[in-house]
């Protein structure tokens, strides 16, 4: 580093090494320790930094913090995203186990409900055939008896 580079650094970033860009900081510090011209540049610019330090900002942010949180609108997410977020919560969420299990059981519950109400698969046709055969048999019996009467 030379005097011009050091001057440009101080003119831009001031005399506080904490504000200097990281990649030149060590080099500039070394130059400052060895160069009288660098120390003079710092002496010229230091009063401005001291003046800047007098502009302190002390704000009570409690009220603003509460104001921001109070006016937070609900997140605008799609219904499907909300459903998926409910079914699959984050891994550390207490519901992360039972919600997917509940959703997985839903088809079974629906199946049982539908099955018990509709009674699909019960063969009722054979009962009707038997009834008809019985009626036919009774009819035939009645005819024989009727014919055999004088």
């Amino acid at each position: 580093m030379n005097t011009d580079e050091f001057r440009r650094l101080i003119e831009s970033y001031g005399t506080k090494p904490a504000n200097w860009p990281e990649h030149v900081s060590a080099e500039a510090m070394q130059f400052l320790q060895t160069s009288e011209a660098a120390r003079q540049i710092v002496t010229i610019h230091e009063p401005l930094d001291k003046a800047l330090d007098r502009h302190e900002v002390n704000l009570d942010l409690t009220r603003l913090d509460q104001r921001i949180l109070a006016q937070l609108p609900a997140q605008q997410t799609h219904l499907i995203d909300q459903v998926l977020a409910w079914i699959l919560p984050k891994p550390n969420h207490p519901s992360s186990f039972w919600r997917p299990a509940l959703v997985a059981c839903l088809p079974l519950v629906f199946g049982i409900a539908i099955g018990s109400n509709l009674a699909i698969g019960t063969d009722t046709t054979s009962e009707y055939v038997d009834d008809e055969l019985l009626l036919m048999a009774l009819q035939t019996e009645t005819d024989i008896i009727t014919e055999s009467l004088p």
């Binding site: 002496t43 010229i44 009063p47 003046a51």
Partner: peptide, 25 residues
Amino acid sequence: PASETSDPINTLMADVSGEDVKRAL
């Protein structure tokens, strides 16, 4: 213009208040 003198300006700067800096900013 870049200032290369220090003494008078430094003496003045010592009296600058935070409010002065705020206004100048």
